[in-house]
């Protein structure tokens, strides 16, 4: 019963509070607020699944708890003797199959869209290292920029010597910067073990596999700072290699690119 109540509260929270909360503060109950079309589709699909599952759940356990309360020996219930019913059994095999078909349809469309990495505006290679990310801008505006990106939360905060900042464990020294509204293809690989590049608001999670290249893509529709984590156990500091992406306007992006180019040229000249 306890679980029933929790489940109900929880579903209410997911249904009502979730999206409202997700707008401003970090998500707590539900998927993070989507900023790409794919993430949007995933959110909708998840809500749909949740509702369908909830309805079935209430139906099945409504029946079960009805029986639990009414068909008790202490209430004088006398056991019936039936033990099969072909029609019912066929119905509860076939109806679930139809429901599943309904679920599979939107999912199939999204899978196909997620896999379509063609015609990007920008191509960036992300490399997983133990325990940081490396980014190379391979093609498009900013081609040639490359840098490493590692956790910038100070050690004292982690060990409790200093109060924890707002973006505790989700902040890096050099974030990835991309233009808003542009299709960004991300190529992934790794240097040592498998890592996984995950930005929840983009609906993107792709393993980075040493010795192989995989790809994924996103098109962020909203400027802002988006944060994620490595999502594949990769050793000691797996919990400490976040991903921070700044989605900026086209002008800001151009400025950033030229600043980076200049800095890289200075560094080259100094060598």
């Amino acid at each position: 019963m306890e679980s029933a109540r929790r489940f109900a509260t929880a579903s209410a929270a997911v249904g009502l509070a979730g999206p409202a909360l997700a707008q401003d503060s970090p998500a707590r109950y539900n998927l993070q607020a989507p900023v790409t079309g794919i993430a949007e589709q995933i959110n909708d699909m998840h809500t749909l699944m949740l509702v369908i599952c909830l309805v079935i759940f209430i139906g099945v356990f409504g029946v079960m708890f009805w029986a639990v309360f009414h068909h008790r020996k202490s209430k004088g219930a006398v056991a019936a003797h039936f033990h099969e019913n072909t029609a019912v059994e066929i119905a509860w095999t076939v109806i679930p199959i139809l429901i599943l078909l309904g679920m599979a349809w939107p999912a199939t469309r999204t899978v196909i869209e997620m896999k379509d990495t063609s015609n990007p505006d920008l191509t960036i290679k992300a490399t997983g290292y133990q325990w940081k990310w490396g980014y190379d801008y391979l093609q498009g505006e900013g081609e040639g920029i490359r840098f490493l990106s590692s956790l910038s939360t100070p050690r004292e905060q982690i060990e409790g010597g200093a109060p924890k900042g707002e973006a505790y464990l989700l902040e890096v020294d050099k974030p990835l910067v991309v233009p808003v509204g542009k299709k960004v293809r991300v190529l992934l690989t790794a240097n040592d073990v498998i890592h996984s590049w995950w930005v929840p608001a983009f609906g993107v999670k792709q393993d980075a596999i040493p010795g192989f290249i995989r790809d994924t893509w996103f098109r962020a529709d909203k400027e802002g700072i988006y944060r994620g984590n490595c999502a594949e156990l990769c050793g000691r500091d797996h919990g400490f290699m976040p991903i921070e992406v700044h989605v900026v306007s086209a002008e800001k992006y151009a400025e950033w690119v030229s600043a980076q180019m200049q800095a890289q040229n200075v560094a080259l000249a100094a060598q």
Binding site: A27, R28, N30, H46, A231, G239
Partner: peptide, 22 residues
């Protein structure tokens, strides 16, 4: 275990010894 559904949806990875404040 029920709150773990929320944690996962909101973006907490598994197999980590420390996590973000939310």
């Amino acid at each position: 275990f029920f709150p773990m559904h929320f944690l996962g949806l909101a973006g907490m990875p598994r197999r980590i010894p420390d996590y973000a404040l939310q």
